[in-house]
Simulated scan of single mutants.
Amino acid sequence: MSATTGPHPRLLKVCGATTPEEAAAVAARADLVGLWYGVENGARDLTGAQLAELAEAVRTAGRAEPVLVTFLHDADRIASAARAARVRWIQLHAYQTPAAVAALRSALPDAVLVKAVHVLDGACVERPFLQAYSRAGADLFLVDAATRGGAVGSTGHRVPAEALEALLPTLPLPFLLAGGLSEADASGHAFAAHPGFRGVDIDHAARVDGGPLDPARVAVLDRAWAATSAPLPGEHPATS
């Protein structure tokens, strides 16, 4: 994909919409809206029909694109759900193998594939496989925290600054950052100046007291993260 030059707003992804109304309400102020599918026992997990309904609500209500966020490893099932819902962005937010990424890339050559990598006890669990994920066809990494209890995704736990600093030089792809972030993190942090930084994935700070995604909170986040800019490519936000 060809790249453009010049500044673009940071990508703001908010995650975990569960109704068309909620998804539509935040789509005007986010770039990406995460929709859970295949997240076993997830509080915000959707059926295939719900995924399609919410994806359409996102597309028609604002500037955002829907993102299928999944723990699934079955590339055929993920691809089928993405096609049915007409979702182009897919976030693999579990411990899928590089082979699973390659199979999904083969099935969906035009998708934007975001592979989550997890920091646990100060180290990236997937560090030995970063190059393999890149070769398999991932477009972006999402750096997030995992917990000793095994929780991944929307944990509210931060990636320790020293662990992030050690990890970033090893990433062969641009990255999004997750893990307890808010508008207060939009400036003054080393990761924001990193050339591979493409934006943030936020859940807890986009809600009030754990409720639905809140348009007012998303507007605050949007203003904060749009105040800085980053180079983004033309068609494919992940390539550089």
Rank of each mutant, 00 (worst) to 15 (best):
S2Y: 13
T4F: 11
P9K: 06
L12K: 09
L12M: 09
C15I: 01
P20D: 12
E21C: 03
A23V: 01
V26Q: 02
A28L: 02
A30S: 12
D31R: 02
L32A: 03
V33T: 04
V33H: 00
V33S: 01
L35M: 12
W36I: 09
V39S: 14
E40Q: 11
E40I: 05
N41V: 04
A43G: 02
R44I: 15
D45S: 14
L46H: 08
L46K: 06
Q50P: 02
A52E: 15
L54C: 03
A57Y: 00
T60R: 04
T60Y: 00
A61Y: 01
A61I: 02
P66A: 07
P66M: 08
P66D: 05
L68A: 09
V69Q: 03
T70H: 06
T70A: 04
F71N: 13
F71L: 07
D74Q: 06
A75L: 13
I78A: 00
S80V: 01
A81Q: 04
A82F: 09
V87R: 04
Q91T: 00
Q91C: 02
L92T: 02
L92S: 04
L92E: 06
H93M: 01
T97H: 02
A102I: 03
A103N: 02
R105T: 14
L108M: 14
L108C: 06
A111D: 06
L120T: 03
L120S: 00
G122I: 02
C124A: 15
P128V: 04
P128F: 14
L130M: 09
L130S: 05
Q131M: 05
Q131G: 08
D139G: 13
L140I: 06
L140D: 09
L142E: 14
V143I: 15
D144I: 10
A145N: 03
A146C: 05
A151F: 11
G153Q: 03
V159H: 07
P160H: 08
A161T: 12
A163V: 05
L164Q: 05
L164S: 09
E165I: 05
L167M: 13
L168C: 10
L168M: 15
T170D: 10
P172W: 10
L173N: 08
A178V: 01
L181V: 06
A184S: 04
D185T: 03
A186G: 09
A192W: 09
A193W: 01
H194D: 15
G196V: 09
R198Q: 06
G199S: 13
V200P: 00
V200Y: 12
I202P: 13
D203V: 15
H204V: 03
A205G: 10
A205V: 03
A205F: 08
A206E: 12
R207I: 08
V208W: 13
V208P: 07
D209M: 04
P212G: 09
P215F: 09
P215Y: 10
P215H: 08
A216R: 14
A216I: 01
V218C: 04
V220R: 12
L221K: 03
A226H: 13
A227G: 10
T228F: 07
A230R: 12
G234D: 07
E235G: 13
E235P: 14
